[in-house]
Amino acid sequence: MALIELRAVRKIYEVGSETVRALDGLDLDVERGSYAAVMGASGSGKSTLMNLVGCLDRPTSGHYRLAGTAVEDLGEDELARLRNREIGFVFQTFNLLARTAAVANVELPLIYAGVARRERRERAREALEQVGLGDRMLHQTSELSGGQRQRVAVARALVNNPSILLADEPTGNLDTATSREIMELFDRLHGAGNTVIVVTHEPDIAARTHRQVVLRDGRVVADTESGP
């Protein structure tokens, strides 16, 4: 059984009189420990897919099993729990709390996991060290560069030991050098056994992963393994 199983998934938006099929009968399996890239033109449904996989959104129809659990049957609170325990999400726009220290941002998932303060701080520190920001713990997010912010976001995604790390164009707002740093980070995380899915436009980034899934009009049009 795959970690992620998507079957005939549709996500349909009604915009005025128009119907947008962001996902249109998509099937996809992702095994535990995979390192995959999701590619495709803008508007092909990549973000919609990641949001569904990340339990931030629900499909209009179809089935989604995460580690055997039928996600579409779950209530709001259970989805929140999955986001908290099973998913680490990295966004293109970082989505860090403003006017808040880096370490406090990283602690956020642990707060909602009910981890006690001291342990929380300790684990957040470890996660920040893992992304090479051990010396920037108490910096406000506004005092950090784009690459550093994204690394804080990665630390936040990691801190609660999720089964899946999802990144939606994590390097979209970063320059080439910083992008490479972030991707090296993902390589390492995959090397350490994490399941990593990255949305990207850039072929050289996709080339680092072991599987490339290409979407068009809300469907998988190509799925190639290039694994080691």
Partner: peptide
């Protein structure tokens, strides 16, 4: 942001 990291 809070909801995305697990706030109910």
């Amino acid at each position: 942001i809070r909801k995305s990291v697990g706030a109910r």
